[in-house]
C-alpha cells in the first residue's frame, strides 16, 4: 500500500487527529499526527488486516533549533506486506509529552527511554520511564539544542564542547 493511500485511510478513520502528509523535504513520506492520538493510530495500523505494521524499525526524538517544538518520529514496517510509513508528532518545548507506544511495540520501550533521556520528552503510559544512557542523576537533556552542561558532575569537571 502506498503512503498516500495510508494517509487517505487514516484521515477518514481518525479525522482531525491526522494533520498533514509530508512528501517534500523527506525521503520517507511522513504523516503528521496529534501527539495524544499516536498510540491509538499505531495500534490500529498494527492490528488492521490492510496494514499489518508489526515492526517498529526506529523511534527518534528530534529538536530542530532552540525555539522549535520537539518532535518524535516513528518509522514503521510491515514484515508481512513489506510496506513502510513514517509518523511524526510535535510536542511543545515547555511541556513535552506524548503518548507511549511501549505496550504496542516493545521496541519502543528502550527507544522512548532514550528519547526521554536525551530530550526530556515524557511518554505517558510508559511502564518504566527512566534514563537509559546517561547517569540517573545527570542534570539536563543533552541533545536539546539549548543544552548547557553543568560545570561539575559529582565533583568532576565537565569539558566544554567547542
Amino acid at each position: 500500500m502506498t503512503e498516500q493511500e495510508i494517509y487517505a485511510n487514516l484521515s477518514s478513520k481518525f479525522g482531525d487527529k491526522i494533520f498533514e502528509f509530508m512528501e517534500e523535504g523527506t525521503l520517507n513520506p511522513t504523516i503528521v499526527v496529534e501527539a495524544g492520538a499516536i498510540a491509538k493510530i499505531v495500534l490500529y495500523l498494527k492490528d488492521d488486516e490492510k496494514f499489518q505494521f508489526d515492526s517498529l524499525m526506529n523511534l527518534a526524538g528530534h529538536d530542530a533549533d532552540v525555539e522549535s517544538d520537539f518532535s518524535v518520529i516513528y518509522h514503521l514496517f510491515s514484515t508481512e506486506l513489506k510496506h513502510y510509513i513514517t509518523l511524526k508528532v510535535f510536542t511543545s518545548r515547555d511541556e513535552p509529552k506524548t503518548a507511549s507506544i511501549a505496550n504496542i511495540h516493545r521496541t519502543a520501550d528502550w527507544h522512548e527511554r532514550e528519547a526521554f533521556d536525551l530530550y526530556g520528552i515524557i511518554f505517558e503510559g510508559h511502564p518504566d520511564l527512566k534514563r537509559i544512557l546517561m547517569e540517573d542523576d545527570w542534570e539536563g537533556y543533552p541533545l536539546r539544542k539549548d543544552y548547557v552542561p553543568a560545570e561539575f558532575y559529582r565533583g568532576m569537571r565537565i569539558e566544554k564542547v567547542k
Binding site: 517534500e24 523535504g25 523527506t26 525521503l27 520517507n28 524499525m57 526506529n58 527518534a60 528530534h62 529538536d63 530542530a64 518520529i73 518509522h75 513514517t86
Partner: peptide, 28 residues
Amino acid sequence: GEIYFRSENPRGELGYYIVSNGKNVPVR
C-alpha cells in the same frame, strides 16, 4: 530534508536517521 536509511549489518538492521538543513553539519 530527512532520511531513514537501513542496511543489513552483521548484527542486524543498522539504521541512520539523518536530518539536514542544507548546511555542512547534520542537525540530527
